[in-house]
Design a binder for these strands. Structure first.
Lengths: 195, 195
DNA sequence: GTCTATACCTTGATAGAC
DNA sequence: GTCTATCAAGGTATAGAC
């Protein structure tokens, strides 16, 4: 029975995901990955054209993961609280899976596509857009969604860069988040009761 | 006259700066750098311990550059307009020198220190803090400064990731910026006229 | 003191044998 | 489908020529 081959795309991806999340991009190299799978480096190329292709798969996976966390966090909350919870979940994911998160927003010039232009990435955006719409009353409120996402990513990114220091800028973040949510909410009120 | 050596730290740094800003991190490799200087790779190590040391020098340089741009943009403006101009200058720098900008906020685990913890980086922060203080009336308003910087970096970062698309989310960014500046300004008013 | 020559090791990737 | 070579390019270290 020669059928069950040692390798499958899923097995490779799983091992790669582990290596990547454990040690970051540098830890994901073809040789150690092959070692982990009990195989020779060259064999991997039968399933993934290149390391970049493999990274693209991991990117998609990261987007799906984060989208699920966001969705879950928002459930059973009123709009304002939902977004507050989403912000927490977003930052929590960026904190606990920093490498995977970084994959989502790789600069455009560094090969692989931006990560959030994947199908999973678009779903993530739509989820955010819907939640913001619930707050502001505008179902297609891209402006506030963009502002919110911009702020969340900035927070995740600066935190990861170690800029905030140990004491943490919690108050600064909460303040900024509140400023944006307030703005969206006021826009909603103005809609319902135009002067 | 054997004295004038072919290499000087400044010459190396300048060539490295050019390579780096032109082609990104990958373009800064020791061999091409040596070629550009008409020298053998090994020679570079008399002046810089490693590629990382060289990168650290470039990081310092980037922080200095950005700080100067910010300072210049803020001159001769009233607080609110100054910060608006600063935001523009910040994003402009991130747009036109993307690689140098990225150097400032390298994730903490990727070797070299966060870039903004250099002396030039601290100056940058102090500049921002002062300008925010002028608006809110609180000379040490770290909260609003953090919120503003978080938002600016998020914008620079998402833009670079190509997330906003060609049409640009100008309105979303202006809206978020306005929300934060308004919040700071209102805090200032409340200070002067406490209820 | 300054630079060259050279070598070592690790990457990603490919071609062809089995 | 997997292995065995093998390649080019990268960062780095050292020994020795000038």
């Amino acid at each position: 029975m020669p059928y069950p081959s040692k390798l499958t795309p899923d097995a490779i991806e799983a091992a790669a995901w582990y290596l990547f999340n454990t040690g970051g991009p540098d830890a994901l190299s073809m040789r150690p990955l092959a070692d982990a799978l009990g195989v020779r480096p060259g064999s991997l190329y039968r399933y993934f054209d290149s390391r970049d292709t493999l990274l693209a798969a991991l990117t998609e996976r990261a987007a799906r993961d984060l989208q699920r966390e966001i969705q879950f966090a928002a459930e059973n909350h009123l709009p304002r609280n939902a977004l507050q919870a989403v912000a927490g979940a977003y930052l929590h994911y960026a904190r606990t899976q920093p490498h995977a998160y970084a994959l989502l927003l790789v600069p455009a010039d560094e090969g692989s596509s931006p990560g959030l232009k994947t199908s999973a990435g678009k779903e993530l955006w739509n989820t955010l857009l819907r939640l913001v719409g619930d707050l502001s009353g505008n179902p297609d409120d891209t402006d506030h969604a963009v502002a919110l996402w911009t702020f969340l990513h900035g927070a995740a990114s600066l935190e990861r860069a170690g800029v905030y220091g140990p004491s943490g800028p919690r108050s600064g973040l909460e303040l900024g988040l509140a400023a944006i949510l307030d703005h969206a909410q006021e826009a909603g009120s103005a809609r319902n009761a135009p002067s």
